[in-house]
């Protein structure tokens, strides 16, 4: 027993040593390589990184995690952060770093590729792709003609207890922040409270809502458009579809996946090249074809079956929004939706 355990340990140390060595090689290769913290998951974005590496010869080292966790990590690392580029699925997370003055200004030649509605006013981050907030519905249970035409209708009694919500999800929180900006805190608090009182079922994340709708547990739910596309890609017969609210309704809010360059980056030149690449026609087509997200550069075909991107952009200026993000957290919490 002892001899065998010792052997196992030795093998393990050898293996760790080996992987240590190999990862050191890539990290210490200072040949202009850049470090990316990506809130966009590997399965979705790795092909784009590979294309960039192949094209430019600039190596990319990546850390993947939830956008909010990465933003906290960058804040904690401060000046010592090894990150050059941050890719955030949520404007909230990148806005958080902007507020801490940890982001560098991006040259206007890069940001101008994108409509001002989809980038930060002070050029600290730029939208790369976008997703629309939608209402997922089960076509076997409800006809599209019967679906609500505005986000406000969801608070009415006829939808009581039927709207799936993910109150802890970053995209939902972004939606609430934008909603506050558009309609004011009282309206939003009343709307959330009405949903909570009516017993709206809550979920941990968007994909869980789409699954629940697909199984017929609920008829409708508030999600991002591409979760429906992802479910349909896995199972083309799944009874789920996207319903888009009218363009001027906050229910069709457009949430961008944003990219930013960190203030302390020592390799801003190559970091800019990566952002440029993200907004190149080639990468925009890859994003659109592979992920079902909306490209943000004019002239790139949008994914099949989606209406054009017309909804409101997330251009919330946090400085103008009373109470900032803390107030968003408090309004969601006080509505009783999470309990």
């Amino acid at each position: 027993m002892r001899i065998r355990s010792t052997a196992v340990l030795l093998v393990a140390f050898a293996l760790v040593g080996a992987s240590c060595g190999s990862s050191d090689n890539t990290a210490s290769d200072d040949n202009g390589s850049i470090t990316v913290y990506s809130g966009r998951s590997e399965d979705l974005i790795a092909p784009i990184f590979e294309a960039f590496e192949a094209e430019t010869g600039i190596e990319i080292n990546v850390k993947y995690d939830d956008s909010a966790n990465l933003a906290l990590l960058i804040e904690t690392e401060g000046d010592a952060s090894p990150a050059d580029v941050f890719i955030s699925q949520s404007p909230g997370a990148v806005g958080f770093l902007d507020g801490k003055e940890l982001l560098a200004e991006i040259p206007s030649e890069i940001t101008e590729r994108v409509d001002p509605a989809y980038r930060s006013p002070d050029s600290t981050w730029v939208g790369v792709t976008a997703r629309a907030r939608t209402l997922v519905y089960n076509p076997d249970l409800i006809a599209e003609a019967d679906l609500p035409q505005s986000i406000m209708e969801l608070a009415q009694p006829e939808w009581a207890g039927q709207v799936g919500i993910a109150p802890g999800n970053g995209s939902f929180q972004d939606f609430v922040t934008a909603f506050r900006f558009q309609a004011g805190d009282d309206v939003v608090a009343g709307w959330l409270g009405a949903l909570a009182d009516a017993g709206a079922p809550t979920y941990a994340k968007n994909s869980a809502i789409v699954d629940a709708v697909s199984r017929g547990e609920i008829k409708i739910g508030l999600v991002n458009h591409y979760y429906v596309l992802g479910t349909l890609a896995e199972d083309p017969d799944a009874p789920v579809a996207n319903h888009f609210f009218p363009a001027d309704d906050v229910g069709s809010l457009v949430i961008v996946t944003g990219a930013a360059i960190l203030e302390q980056s020592e390799n801003a030149a190559n970091a800019q090249k990566l952002l440029e690449f993200f907004l190149s026609d080639e990468a925009q087509m890859m994003f659109s074809a592979g992920e079902g997200e909306y490209p943000l550069v004019d002239g790139i075909a949008i994914p099949d079956g989606l209406p054009p991107l017309t909804g409101l952009g997330y251009t919330v200026d946090l400085a103008e929004l009373g109470g900032g993000l803390e107030a968003t957290a408090a309004i969601i919490r006080d509505s009783g939706l999470q309990g």
């Binding site: 399965d43 990546v62 850390k63 993947y64 966790n69 896995e234």
Partner: peptide, 27 residues
């Protein structure tokens, strides 16, 4: 593991998370 691992270092748990996050249930 996600926050502290060396860059590009993957474990089974991070693989599970990544595939799950992208909605690739089978993987």
């Amino acid at each position: 593991t996600l926050l502290l691992a060396p860059l590009d270092f993957q474990t089974l748990a991070t693989k599970i998370w990544s595939a799950n996050d992208a909605g690739h249930l089978a993987q």
